[in-house]
Nucleic acid binder design. Structure first.
Lengths: 374, 374
DNA sequence: ACGACCTTTGCACACGTGTGCAAAGCTTTC
DNA sequence: GAAAGCTTTGCACACGTGTGCAAAGGTCGT
């Protein structure tokens, strides 16, 4: 192997090519190509000889050169935000694995804020990605149109379509259904004064969880007693607890739009108000992050099936490779309750044993309604 | 723009090319190329005309085609494991941002287990990545040699070199120094019976943290009273607490190789042994995960500077693009103590105020010793 | 053995772009 | 105006591979 010869002007690198294999195996480069192309016509003995030669010289087809030819890179862009957030961390891991299992590679862009999404998408497009999964923000119409022109399908995860619903497939947790689950649980357990702790006002995840909760209570003839905003953070949850729990009509159950706020609220309820959980106050979170299972919290929460979310997103991208994602196509993934000890339960026979490994209720079917425009 | 004409055999996609821009601007494709190549010779007026035309037709250079020419893809492979683990999540986020800021793109491979690393690396090589950051496992010598042949530098993060130290740069936290910090803190606070809770026996992170702790105690004329293995997990930490705290010579301080085990140990110490933390038992973790700051734990811990770790890794990759990483090159990033409330402190004047926002001590300089071969 | 049919193979071109080099064009100096 | 020097420009080839197509080779049936 004489690859130590460095050609000038090639950045000091030279790759093992199909020409090296062809020489070694005594065939043409076309035969080498065909030996590595599923379904291509090549004699079995020739193929064997080529693969042996490829192994000997350390050759593997250049995916970059292939993609120039085939117009398929095998690369899927993934635009994501806050990887340190447990939900996004799990989502990215699940996306990565789902893509790898299908022979695809995730080219990851980390959006420091939602506004960076457009710029990152343009950069991804220049790498001729076969599709993009966006879990950071909604898209501007300019970018959506640009992806459509390039026949690069977009799949939005847990985001609302807005005015460009025609150019993106949408995949998301059934947040409304999740809110319903919580309402059903708390109402059945006899709570009288329910509160909702929102994340950030403009976010669809927060508003949908609230909508499910409110409509679920209404189905039991109940209304929301109190509502605060906690900014999706531990500190925000703790601060909101001061306002919620200081009321004369103090809630006896609080549904928090995410786990982190729920933990903050629990700590403040105990430390500042001396409340026992769940005896004096039931608390329910959303997302089933690892902290929810800690013995100091044992948080009852709603879990998204992140693996299925990722599978659905990857499937949607694959179904539309080379074209434009079908318009107004939305896939809802059902949520499920994870019962631990932070919320009082309905009386038996509906209740089941609690053990350190949380029990999970059956998922409710997706609510089936299309989400409102963002 | 007539890109609706779909050529047969092209996967249904056609990209806007430099030929479209050339036609629009009345120049050659070479001029278009030069307008987008920094330092290339092109008249300012011509350049302006070309950029306007490119904007009008929605053109951006095809990074794939460029990389075929230049032998530089601008893509860096990142092999990582357990993204849901807070440390790896933060590392990946920091790597992503550091790469993006340098105009590089991370092609991410998620290793379900360390054994998958080799196979994932081969796949990354076929995408002609400019380098690889590996944070999942050490490498086999076959793969390391292959990367060297391709002049694709490897940077290992928090991994030991093993027998292929010549082909990879190494970047990692100064775990030994971190262990020293803990020993100094606990000894100065007057603890008499120190214990170490290891993660997994064969891992360098656990053994180095232990080594720093033990040698730090020795410098104070102290020895380790007890030692257990917690498998880096919450449950493991809880189980180990039963063994550690049930001893006749019960430790008054425990240094855990990671935060997760520390939380488990704290929960068991309180619930099973009725111990107060830190009055009866001081507990120190490692990694400063988000859970460490929860009010129910307020864990004193050792933080790695993940941002600096990522910066160092990306810098190392960039310095060696097109060549082989320098042999036996190791960059240690100092750790720092994050003082919260789980460990008793030395008496004043050394002590400072504690507030809900944890105080941090100055980082100790790296221990400066080369790590032992894995 | 010959013809029909099928399989395999190599040639040459395509994919989109960067660049060496020669020619064209422009600017400065005398 | 002419010569020298500098800048700009387009051509044609390279990069590594996939594939249409024609030629070569192999197999089967009569």
């Amino acid at each position: 192997m004489d690859d130590e010869i460095v050609e000038p002007g090639t950045g000091g690198r030279r790759w093992v090519t199909s020409a090296d294999v062809a020489r070694e195996a005594g065939v043409s480069r076309a035969a080498v190509s065909r030996a590595f192309t599923p379904g291509a016509s090549v004699a079995p003995e020739t193929r064997r000889r080529i693969l042996a030669a490829a192994d000997a010289v350390g050759y593997r087809p250049n995916a970059i050169a292939r993609s120039l030819n085939t117009r398929r890179s095998g690369i899927i862009g993934v635009v994501i935000t806050e990887i340190a957030n447990p939900f996004y961390a799990r989502l990215l891991e699940a996306l990565g694995i789902a893509l790898q299992e299908r022979g695809l590679m995730p080219l990851v862009s980390v959006a420091p804020d939602p506004e960076a999404t457009d710029e990152l998408l343009v950069r991804l497009l220049s790498y001729q990605v076969d599709g993009v999964v966006v879990a950071s923000a909604t898209l501007s119409s300019g970018i959506a149109a640009r992806c459509a022109a390039a026949r690069t399908p977009i799949v939005l995860v847990d985001r609302r379509a807005g005015e460009h619903g025609r150019e993106a497939a949408l995949v998301g947790a059934d947040n409304v259904g999740g809110g319903h689950l919580v309402a059903d649980l708390l109402a059945a357990a006899g709570h009288r004064r329910h509160a909702f702790l929102a994340g950030i006002e403009a976010t669809s995840t927060s508003t949908e969880r609230e909508r499910g909760f409110v409509s679920g209570l209404a189905a039991h003839g109940l209304t929301l007693t109190a509502r605060e905003v906690g900014r999706f953070s531990y500190v925000g949850g703790r601060d909101a607890a001061l306002r919620l729990l200081g009321r004369a009509d103090r809630p006896d159950a609080v549904f928090c739009a995410n786990d982190e706020m729920a933990l903050g609220l629990m700590d403040a309820a105990r430390a500042t108000f001396g409340l026992r959980i769940p005896q004096d106050l039931s608390v329910v979170g959303f997302d089933d992050t690892p902290s929810a299972a800690l013995a100091s919290y044992r948080l009852t929460t709603v879990a998204q099936d992140v693996t299925e979310l990722a599978e659905a997103a990857v499937t949607a991208v694959q179904e539309h490779t080379g074209s434009v994602a079908a318009s107004a196509r939305y896939r809802l993934i059902p949520c499920r309750l994870v019962l631990r000890e932070s919320a009082r339960l309905p009386p038996p026979p509906a209740s089941t044993l609690h053990d350190p490994n949380a029990m999970t209720t059956a998922a409710v079917p997706p609510s089936g309604r299309m989400p409102a425009a963002g």
